[in-house]
Write a protein that binds this DNA or RNA. Structure first.
Length: 721
RNA sequence: GCGCGGUUAGCUCAGUUGGUAGAGCGCGUCAUUGACGUUGACGAUGCCAGAGGUUCGAGUCCUCUACCGCGCACCA
């Protein structure tokens, strides 16, 4: 017996050595496969970009799940001799990373980012990002990912920055990107705007107060946020509401509302529900998205009363500089003291919080950059909008979403989509490629000239200097370009020609809108083609109690620990088997243990086969049933692979190997010399089928067989006759 | 409010197009000294959430109900 074949399989002894062999072979890079004659230059391609993990932290079991699925796809397709490319990368994750580093510095040094200054702070963030990056790369290798490291990208590196600036300028020139002053989602904690999608709703109990602005005010209104009411400039009622019709058009002056003067115009607007509350809506244009819209329709004045620190910015001594929550109590008390409060009722309410910082969102009017999703533009004589592009990509089946049910969710989301606020008041990210300089105007108000381009404009000695926009871009702007920015765009590279649109995008259903939709937007707009032909959505990995993995619960499992304990192959199998697309999965010790045992079983099968069989003598008629059976299995597995049913393929392989090959065929071979003769052949073919799922152990065993010159990873997938 | 998913053996879950229920773990009985005890053989356990319908036939299709989870919208 081969002395390398210890009685029990010891993964740690082999895994790193094998990964190194793979890397040294260069076969992760399709160019090398072509060069070495393993893949034909004219073969079909299979390409996939890695959803870049955030450098905020290191990988968790959810990432391991994603990597396992993708590596299975990639290894399978490579074995089909396709030109197979899987591009690695990491994501700078702007807000997430910045706020994490800010917290760290605050905790360790008691300083904030302004104490350090932009330059020094960014250095710290970059150091932090680099450290996490290195760990992430190490983790991905431990899991066995056959990523082409020679093409590794980072969402914030120079090449990607060029892509970002190029797209920004193109959209700016097409007037799809615009700058405007309007109500945005302001996160007082993170001190930045965020997009609608970055809001997380939390249900809390609130009190609905019904009151009048003053004793002689004719209409009562209801609100859960009395403190914003000092910013009211109108009361809106439904046009057909008989109760209030007579007041429409009038303006009422309120001399003292908690120390503020109000001027309230009564307006009629269809959007008001006469059944809700008093049927009258106090309009606060500066601090509500909906009220802002109403104010636009009726040319109402704007009265901001809350600042960026969620404090009252009014003159009233009662409220000035008070936190909004304090101001609420003060006003409630004031209303009661003045006998203006008519009703208080507890009510459930969804409050908006920022996904990354948990801060309570304060709608504020601000000058920001937006992508207009409804503006028409022409292409090939067709009138399009970004929304239409996003919708038709899926509706016309240019993109196929797996599982299908998410297509509906996608469509529904796009239909409700509003302009995307892309500017962030944070430092870590792609700086907006826009410069301004002051222009003297006749009436002495300041006006700016605006310049948008890839490179900064040259200063003119006769004129004031240009200065760049301070803001950075939403991280999803750069992620949206990922399928083509990683292939070298804006250069017209060979990679772009060869591998775009990518074959499949594999990612979690939780970022369908954040990311998948944005990639579709960017690619269809910039390149005029979809970013990928298929979307495979996986679910969440939960702990054994079904809870989401989260830091506060402390139930995060480090894939590296699991690998040490059970082997990379076992971790992959435990994650894959039984978990269909779009379904959440639970990870448990029992499952991991079961596949560790399976690896050992395979190992011992190898020991037996090597001792008892040779690579020959297939043509024995009495073994035909075994060969037929195997061919049926191969076919079954192949169909599953083609249809993204990895969870079924893996399970079937498990059963065949253990309960057919080991329990029946090997047992039979102990009694029948003829059966022995096909063991080697059958087992080698099985190793090929198993390889995408359990790459390490299969590669190791493969290397122990006689006549195995090539690495298993580039062997041909068993063919169907 | 609109929509989606789940509800199958003690536990965790499969069941791709409708043909009298499956796996792993756990449990029981037995076997086995050399591929593997990280083993093998055999076995027990299910009104497939509930009600109705289509069908020769439904876990699988349709309708409704209940509970759990999720997304979106509303949130004056």
């Amino acid at each position: 017996m081969n002395e390398e074949l210890t009685k029990a399989y010891n993964p740690t002894e082999h895994e790193d050595v094998i990964y190194k062999k793979w890397e040294e072979s260069g076969f992760f890079n399709p160019d090398v496969c072509i060069e070495k004659g393993i893949t034909s230059d004219t073969a079909d391609y299979f390409s996939i970009v890695l959803p870049p993990p955030n450098v905020t932290g290191t990988l968790h079991m959810g990432s391991a799940f994603m990597l396992a699925i993708e590596d299975i796809m990639v290894r399978y397709n490579r074995m089909l001799s396709k030109k197979t490319l899987w591009i690695p990368g990491t994501d700078h994750a702007a807000i997430a990373t910045q706020s994490k580093v800010e917290k760290l510095i605050q905790k360790e040094e008691g300083k904030n980012r302004h104490d350090l200054g932009r330059e020094e702070f960014l250095k710290r963030v970059e150091k932090f990002a680099k450290e996490n990056h290195d760990i992430i790369v190490h983790q991905m290798k431990k899991i066995g990912c056959s990523l082409d490291w020679s093409r590794e990208a980072f969402t914030l590196d120079e090449k990607r920055n060029l892509a970002v600036k190029t797209v920004f300028k193109k959209m700016y020139d097409d007037e799809l990107i615009y700058r405007d002053y309007k109500v945005v989602n302001w996160d007082p904690k993170g001190q930045t705007t965020i997009s609608d999608d970055e809001i997380v709703y939390e249900e809390r109990k609130a009190v609905m107060y019904t009151f009048k602005y003053s004793k002689d005010f004719p209409i009562a209104i209801s609100t859960t946020r009395p403190e914003t009411k000092v910013g009211d400039t109108a009361v809106a009622v439904h046009p057909n509401d008989e109760r209030y019709k007579k007041y429409v058009g009038q303006t009422f002056e309120v001399a003292d509302f908690a120390g503020e003067k109000l001027s309230i115009k009564i307006i009629a607007d269809e959007s008001v529900d006469p059944e809700f509350g008093t049927g009258a809506l106090g309009v606060t244009p500066a601090h509500s998205q909906i009220d802002w819209d109403i104010a636009q329709r009726h040319q109402l004045p704007l009265k901001p009363v809350i600042n960026e620190y969620a404090r009252m910015s009014v003159d009233s001594s009662l409220l000035k500089d008070k936190k909004v929550t304090e101001a609420r109590e003060i006003i409630v008390q004031w209303l009661k003291d003045n006998s203006l409060m008519l009703d208080e009722k507890e009510t459930p309410q969804n409050i908006s919080t920022a996904e990354r910082t948990g801060g309570i969102i304060e709608p504020l009017p601000k000058l920001q950059w937006f992508i207009n999703v409804n503006k028409e533009f022409e292409r090939n004589g067709k009138k399009l909008t970004l929304k239409k592009l996003m919708l038709s990509a899926v509706e016309d089946k240019n993109i196929n979403i797996i599982p299908e049910r998410f297509e509906k969710e996608y469509t529904h989301w796009i239909e409700n989509l509003r302009d995307w606020c892309i500017s962030r008041q944070i430092w870590y990210g792609h700086r907006i490629p826009v410069w301004y300089r002051t222009k003297q105007s006749l009436n002495k108000t300041l006006e700016y000239e605006t310049y948008c381009n890839i490179e900064a404009p040259k200063n003119d000695s006769n004129k004031p200097d240009w200065f760049q926009d301070e803001d950075t871009l939403d991280t999803w702007f750069s992620s949206g370009l990922w399928t083509f920015s990683t292939l070298g765009w804006p250069d017209q590279t060979e990679d772009l020609k060869n591998y775009h649109p990518t074959t499949v995008l594999e990612t979690g259903y939780d970022i369908l809108f954040f990311w998948v939709a944005r990639m579709i937007l960017m690619s269809t707009y910039v390149l005029g083609e979809v970013p990928f032909k298929n979307v495979y959505l996986h679910g969440l990995v939960r702990d054994n109690q079904g809870r989401k993995i989260s830091k506060s619960l402390g139930n995060n499992l480090d894939p590296l620990d699991m690998i040490t304990k059970y082997s990379a192959d076992a971790v992959r199998m435990a994650l894959i088997v039984g978990t269909g697309p779009g379904n959440d999965t639970k990870i448990s010790d029992e499952k991991l243990k079961a596949y560790k045992h399976f690896a050992n079983k395979i190992w011992n099968i190898a020991r037996f086969v090597l001792d008892n069989s040779q690579d020959q003598n297939l043509e024995i008629p009495e073994n035909k049933k075994y060969l037929d059976e195997f061919e049926a299995l191969t076919k079954d597995i192949t169909v599953d692979m083609e249809n993204y049913r990895f969870y079924l393929a893996a399970e079937k392989l498990y059963h065949y190997t253990w309960h057919t090959f080991a329990d029946i065929i090997i047992e039979e071979s102990k009694k029948n010399e003829n059966t022995k003769k096909i063991l080697m052949f059958l087992f080698k073919e099985q190793l090929k089928l198993l390889h995408p799922f359990m790459p390490f152990i299969t590669e190791k065993i493969w290397s122990l067989f006689p006549n195995s010159k090539n690495l298993l990873m580039v062997e041909k997938w068993p063919s169907l006759s």
